[in-house]
Design a protein around this nucleic acid. Structure first.
Length: 512
RNA sequence: GAGCCGGUAGCUCAGGUGGUAGAGCAACGGCCUUUUAAGCCGUGGGUCGAGGGUUCGAUCCCCUCCCGGCUCACCA
């Protein structure tokens, strides 16, 4: 190692010295384990643990807790401190005469800092001010923190409102040092618990229906299933180029060909595009494919699924997010895309040719990229005039065929496919089709994509010969669905940025 | 990628129209055996994001760059 020791703060220096002192005293600052019998929450919620007036200390129920020291209030020969564990915070009372003079004066008072992890054994009592507190009889060092943690101060006024001073609030630091964010900001821990519960609720819902959770390749020789630019990598032994998946659609449908009736996968997908409040280069989707169903059935399913999720997380179908109250109660409006556009703009785009669409776009002041096709223009108009207005969950159905090379042609409307998106809070959260299972039609659609690609559309799909071969063996009629987990988590946790629902959002490296 | 805003002590922030900086919390030394933003007395801690320019002198002025936030554009 040729790197120089990084310079450390004064407080870091002092803590390194304390670490040495602990070792000299024969105290292991990093022991191997500690027997925990209770969490803070279990103690606070169980009054039976509190010592009775007529009991001796050692006859009262004994508890053993562990966590991080968050505050210290030392009053000479006794002290209070708050201990934070995974479920909350509890106050500890500690006295010299109970744990011993050296243990108290040196190990606790002198060498223990805010941020250190310690274990406490003792009984539970209620202080004069009415706070349930653990009375320490044993104090065990569990881990020395060498860096000081930022301590927000919470003050409660007479009405019980909590004010936080000096919160650890710098977003850059919170994202880069998420561990610290989680230690110091309890509401952040809650957001991620909610996210996990959300995924769990979805998984349970699908498992109850008998669908099979599967895993499919992340490294793919041909990327497909969506329109996006991929990350490219290389396999050394095979000496071949591979792509990180942008979607797993084509693999899951191969499994439907293989005979499963329902398969789903929570998948990390990767798209080599810009970052924003709504975009991270790696993100999570759940995709589900169910045989013998169509997109009408899938709309019923999505309603039921998300209503279930809202109730599991919030106990009600109503979720407050971004200043709106969103109600996931079934049923939701189902509006064909062209009707939705006509309602907002007064323009009927159905059946219009490219020139007419361009003229309407210009009238509506929608800016278009060079060479935008029909589907693209319609999508732009929709995105500008309709999408932001859809706050309550709404199905938009029947998309132009140009935008959807993997969806089945509409059973009655020329030029459209059987596709829907669910829009909520002004953003797409789900996308689904009656899956295209006609191998000849699918080949033509791929060929059209190839044409677009040769004209410079980098996001056009590549022709996947093996996928066509699979379809040629016969895929049953199938309904397919994709739901953006991060965006749904944003709605369900009232988060305004995708970074707030990802533990470790993509960041540029820190400057030295 | 473009525009706007920001980066000062471990954290949250002040400040200075050029003479190397302050507060609260945190830390350090004392006092204090039911406190809870504990209290009281005292002390230390900063290459003011990085580099360059102007200047006797730059944290401040100028230029370039790095990092972040928000907004906009593509995308889920």
């Amino acid at each position: 190692m040729s790197n120089a020791e990084p310079s450390v703060s004064e407080q870091h220096e002092i803590r390194l010295q304390k670490l040495e002192e602990l070792r000299k005293m024969g105290v292991n600052p990093y022991p191997f384990s500690f027997d925990v019998t209770h969490t803070s929450k279990q103690i606070l919620e169980n009054p039976d643990l509190i010592k009775k007036d007529d009991q001796a200390d050692e006859d009262a129920p004994q508890v053993s807790i562990a966590g991080r020291v968050m505050t210290r209030r030392i009053m000479g020969k006794s002290a209070f401190f708050n201990l934070q564990d995974s479920e909350g915070t509890i106050q500890v009372y500690i006295r010299r005469d109970d744990i011993g003079t050296e243990e108290y004066n040196t190990v606790f008072k002198k060498l223990t800092d805010i941020g250190d992890v310690v274990g406490i054994k003792g009984h539970v009592f209620v202080t004069g001010t009415g706070e349930t507190t653990v009375f320490a009889k044993e104090f065990t060092f569990l881990s020395k923190a060498l860096r000081p943690i930022p301590i927000p101060k919470e003050v409660e006024d007479e009405e019980g409102n909590v004010k936080v001073y000096d919160a650890f609030s710098d977003k850059e630091q919170r994202y880069r040092q998420r561990y610290l964010d989680l230690i110091v900001n309890p509401e952040v821990r809650d957001v991620f618990r909610q996210r996990t519960r959300m995924v769990q609720a979805m998984r349970d819902f699908m498992n109850d229906k008998g669908y099979l959770e599967v895993e499919t390749p992340i490294l793919q020789p041909i990327y497909g299933g969506a329109s996006a630019r991929p990350f490219v990598t290389h396999h050394n032994a095979l000496d071949m180029q591979l792509y990180l998946r942008i979607a797993n659609e084509l693999y899951l449908k191969r499994l439907i060909v293989g005979g499963y009736d329902g398969v789903y996968e929570f998948s990390k997908d990767f798209r080599n595009e810009g970052l924003s409040r709504f975009h991270n280069p790696e993100f999570t989707q759940v995709e589900l494919y169910v045989a013998y169903k169509d997109y009408n059935w899938m709309m019923d399913f999505v309603e039921a699924l998300l209503e279930h999720v809202a109730i599991e997380l919030h106990g009600t179908t109503k979720v407050t997010t971004g200043g709106h109250e969103i109600d996931f109660k079934r049923p939701w409006p189902r509006i064909p895309m062209f009707e939705a556009i006509e309602k907002e703009t007064g323009k009927d785009l159905y059946g219009k040719d490219l020139e007419e669409l361009k003229r309407i776009a210009a009238e509506l002041k929608v800016e278009l990229e060079e060479g935008a096709g029909k589907g693209k223009i319609i999508d732009e108009i929709f995105g500008e005039y309709v999408e932001p207005k859809l706050i309550q969950p709404t199905f938009i159905t029947d998309y132009p065929i140009e935008m959807s090379p993997l969806a089945k042609k509409h059973r009655s409307k020329e030029g459209l496919v059987e596709r829907f998106e669910c829009i909520c809070n002004g953003k797409e959260i789900a996308n689904a089709f009656s899956e295209l299972n006609d191998p000849i039609d699918q080949r033509e659609r791929f060929e059209e994509q190839a044409r677009l690609r040769s004209e410079g559309d980098e996001e056009a799909m590549a022709l996947d010969e093996d996928y066509l071969r699979a379809l040629e063996f016969g895929m049953p009629p199938t309904a397919g669905l994709g739901i953006g987990i991060d965006r749904l988590a944003m709605i369900m946790t009232n988060s305004t940025s995708i970074r707030d629902v990802l533990f470790f959002p993509q960041m540029k490296p820190e400057a030295n």
